[in-house]
Amino acid sequence: MSDRHVIETREEYLAAVDSISAGTGPIAIDAERASGFRYSQRAYLIQVFRRDAGVFLFDPPAIGAMTELDDAIADVEWVLHAASQDLACLREVGLDPAVIFDTELAARLLGLPRVGLGTVVEELLGIHLAKEHSAADWSTRPLPASWLEYAALDVELLVDLRDALAVMLDDSGKRGIAGEEFQATLDREVKAVRADPWRRLSGVHALRGQRSLAVARELWLARDALAQERDIAPGRLVPDASLVAVARAMPTTKRALADLREFTGRASRSELERWWQAVETGLTTTDLPVMKQAGDNTLPPPRAWSDRNPEADARLKGARAAVAVISEERSIPMENLLTPDLLRRVAWTPPVVIDAASVADELARLGARPWQVAATSQAIADAFVDADQEPDQSTEALS
């Protein structure tokens, strides 16, 4: 195992920027967060590799903004694995690529059965890459040597992997669609913060009554504030199931709250006063949440379509089958060929006149990439027409 060094000072960082600038070829980059341990999604380690420069391990909390590095490699292709997972935390420190090559996305488009970094590296490069530290708490200081070795290998092989995948994309005629997907990853807008983020609480939909929802909301807000204050993942303080259990039980005293067996978690008793104040607020507030948010454009689950919109159900089933055939022919997973939610939306509300052109326009309006539109619009239109022409079985039964 090599002696990996973590760069923690501005002086070392600026020297590393010079070295990376003098390297050749694409930049491999990765970031390690502390998801599940910390409240924030910031990067606690950023790894960079470039040929003729080597591997560099940066400590972003210690270094601060890394705009000098961004300036130095602004015109170079950045190689990432599952770029969508890392772009936000990289941008937070000033690292924002103009061109990327996403090795995970390339593997998906090539139809590889498993696309995890370790699996793809082993399959294409013949090197076993241990992944035992992927879920570690990277806010730990000092970082163990074995973690640093793992982190370094994550980028040290990325450029070689990129080159192997690029050849496969060229050979399969998929280089163009890969480029569209890489650009779409860069262009994807950050999701707007929900008006009621507490509704993400797992199990909240099972609660009955506005008062129970109010208690759940106040508990979520109290936990979120404490999690931000301590920079700890909310679920490590009190799990979602415990908050929902309280909202379901509706305890009327602090003692009843403390005695609730389902109310668990490391902060469930040490912060009991905080939780009780939240429960009291939920029990007494006049600001009761609605059972369902206004303007919610969420479609019903497909299993309910046959009852609620049988015509849309028939369109969706036919289109799914048609897209599945294209997916098989092109060796591209269905979810990459066309987003399932997008297919559901066009099936639920199709164009007034159904043909390949109108379906193509609707797919593009909903956000499909040009290659996706070209690959699927005709088949979807044909499936919709066939579904609309099928006789109503209930009418047939009466005739």
Results as ranks from 00 to 15, higher is better:
Asn297Val: 06
Trp371Ala: 01
Tyr13Pro: 07
Ser331Cys: 00
Val190Asp: 03
Asp231Ile: 13
Ala249Asp: 07
Asp361Trp: 05
Gln228Met: 08
Lys174Pro: 00
Ala31Phe: 04
Asp75Ala: 05
Ala107Ile: 00
Arg50Ile: 03
Glu229Ile: 08
Leu337Ser: 00
Ala34Gly: 10
Ala195Trp: 06
Arg108Gly: 00
Ala184Cys: 00
Val353Leu: 01
Glu328Tyr: 09
Asp307Tyr: 10
Ala62Met: 15
Asp52Trp: 09
Pro370Gln: 07
Arg162Gly: 03
Val325Asn: 12
Asp154Val: 08
His81Arg: 12
Arg141Asn: 14
Gly64Asp: 09
Thr119Gly: 01
Val121Tyr: 01
Thr349Val: 09
Phe384Ala: 04
Leu165Ala: 08
Glu271Tyr: 15
Asp313Ile: 02
Leu299Gly: 04
Ile63Phe: 13
Leu186Gln: 04
Ile20Thr: 04
Ala294Tyr: 08
Thr9Arg: 14
Leu272Gly: 13
Glu271Gln: 15
Val353Thr: 02
Pro197Ala: 07
Ala241Arg: 15
Arg4Ser: 09
Leu117Glu: 00
His81Phe: 11
Arg175Tyr: 02
Trp78Ile: 02
Arg303Ala: 01
Lys191Ala: 15
Ile63Ser: 12
His5Ser: 06
Glu262His: 13
Thr67Val: 13
Ile232Thr: 15
Met250Ser: 05
Cys89Asn: 07
Asp361Thr: 05
Gln85Asp: 07
Glu229Val: 08
Leu186Tyr: 06
Val48Phe: 11
Glu311Tyr: 07
Asp355Met: 05
Thr284Met: 10
Leu69Met: 12
Leu257Cys: 14
Val244Trp: 06
Leu169Gln: 04
Leu283Ala: 02
Val204His: 11
Ala15Tyr: 09
Ala135Thr: 13
Ala107Gly: 02
Arg162Asp: 01
Leu316Pro: 08
Ala304Met: 03
His128Ala: 13
Leu366Cys: 01
Thr298Ala: 11
Tyr150Cys: 08
Ile7Arg: 10
Ala364Ile: 01
Ala357Gly: 00
Ala178Arg: 01
Val79Lys: 10
Pro350Tyr: 07
Asp313Phe: 12
Ala347Val: 01
Asp287Tyr: 10
Ser377Trp: 04
Ala381Tyr: 03
Met168Glu: 09
Glu362Ala: 14
Arg199Tyr: 10
His81Gln: 11
Leu95Met: 09
Arg38His: 12
Ala192Pro: 02
Thr264Pro: 06
Ser19Pro: 00
Thr119Phe: 02
Met334Phe: 01
Leu157Tyr: 14
Thr185Leu: 03
Gln210Tyr: 03
Thr284Arg: 14
Tyr150Phe: 11
Leu260Lys: 14
Thr24Asn: 14
Pro289Ser: 06
Leu343Ala: 05
Phe384Lys: 05
Val115Lys: 02
Asp231Trp: 15
Ser399Asn: 10
